[in-house]
Write a protein that binds this DNA or RNA. Sequence first.
DNA 1: CAATGACGTTGTATAAAAAGCAATATGAAG
DNA 2: CTTCATATTGCTTTTTATACAACGTCATTG
Lengths: 255, 255
Amino acid sequence: MIQSVERALSLLDYLAEHPESKHSLTEMTEFLGIDKSSVFRLLSTLMNRGLVRQDEGRKTYQLGFGIYTLAAALRTQTKITEIVSPFLRRIAVETNENAHLAVRSGMSAVFVDRERASKTISANTNIGDSEELHCTAVGKCLISELDEKSLRILFEDAPMSRYTDNTITDIDSLVAEMAKVRELGYAVDAEEYERNVVCLAAPIINFEGVVEAAIGISGPKDRMEAQMDAFIRTIREAGLELSETLGARRSRPSL
Amino acid sequence: MIQSVERALSLLDYLAEHPESKHSLTEMTEFLGIDKSSVFRLLSTLMNRGLVRQDEGRKTYQLGFGIYTLAAALRTQTKITEIVSPFLRRIAVETNENAHLAVRSGMSAVFVDRERASKTISANTNIGDSEELHCTAVGKCLISELDEKSLRILFEDAPMSRYTDNTITDIDSLVAEMAKVRELGYAVDAEEYERNVVCLAAPIINFEGVVEAAIGISGPKDRMEAQMDAFIRTIREAGLELSETLGARRSRPSL
DNA sequence: CAATGACGTTGTATAAAAAGCAATATGAAG
DNA sequence: CTTCATATTGCTTTTTATACAACGTCATTG
């Protein structure tokens, strides 16, 4: 609505989307399609506020560290539950199954939010409950990024309890399972914790590329299996959208 | 320089600096001291670009997740060495001792940058070198945030080698030493790795409150001890300033 | 080494956009 | 239902951002 502000923000976006990290004034002038002097003053303003910085010889521009100050503030102000709640509601309605949000705490997946489906009889999880990592869909998501060595260390003095015939109880199988989760982008708990209960979950990845939480649904085996493909799509897309909201990207920083 | 952009950025700063996370339009109007309609349009523009968001009933404003997108981009684009290099040069000149920057890689502190002091004879560290965590000042900084349990796990199957009489080789002493580092804000290696060599280092903390790197100086015992207090101040201040640059704060996010 | 050219920076008249005012809408409280 | 507070929109005026042009600055090249 306010032109100069929009242009300034376009410059920030441009700098963010072009990682070459060396951008001249003329280059950005061409991008915006307006006069050099205007771009110069826009960049100067952004520089004064620390959102843009110049290299050594004041020749090229890139994003400035003021961004970090804002990000740090946003981080302290935002509870992940606030972001995820509407998703939980939508998923619970769409799937007619219970939806939940979990974060990792030590060796547990702790449920920090939950939305019941109207027609569901069973209400197996409550906020604050914790479950084990090796036998639940959200749990698997929360440790899915760990490499083999880390997994072995993690479960070294924490035996994987068996709950059903399907429970994964040896570390080799778990390592393989984690690779599968990473590849597919979601995790399944096929009656591995409780008979007749199937869960699906997807990781929520933040802007550092770290799994910060997991979003999942669970329900009785027959209902879950009947709509498996649709549910998988729903939960994967929710995970991806939430990850994008938190600024997740493909690449990782160097050094 | 460009008024409307400056005002828009002031609004972002205001939202960042007031963590109550619920801010009405009139409140921000009073802050900027300009007309409501202008503030409204500024906020609308920022909202369109995702840098500001509104709560449920479109009543209050707070920082938006577009910030994360920018922060993620900045993170991928920025090498920490670029930020720290000028500090290393300044410190090397000021102290006349070698200055270096290290990050953690597994059980090692890896040196990723270094600046030699002109009058120094010994050049003990080179870029790419790695040292152990328990017996060096930078190493101590890099693990200073770990709690007792994590430290014990970390050193479980990695014995702490003894290099001198001063080397810390038992986990209890190391745990105590880490508490000291956290309290003081810097770490000392008093001939713990090499005879006659004393090192000082300070952690560099990013906007998540995580130790991302450590900056340090080292030199022969007599020279170091002669100016200990001044050197400590120099290295601590460098660490604090760099941490601030990376957006470090006091508080940590909840949930 | 001078000349040329590319790019960044600054001054200024003018056109355009943002500010302010006032009117209207929305929603909460009594 | 009325009242009040706050958000939103329309419109005129003034301010400000823009474009143009002139000037610096630096690097390249004949």
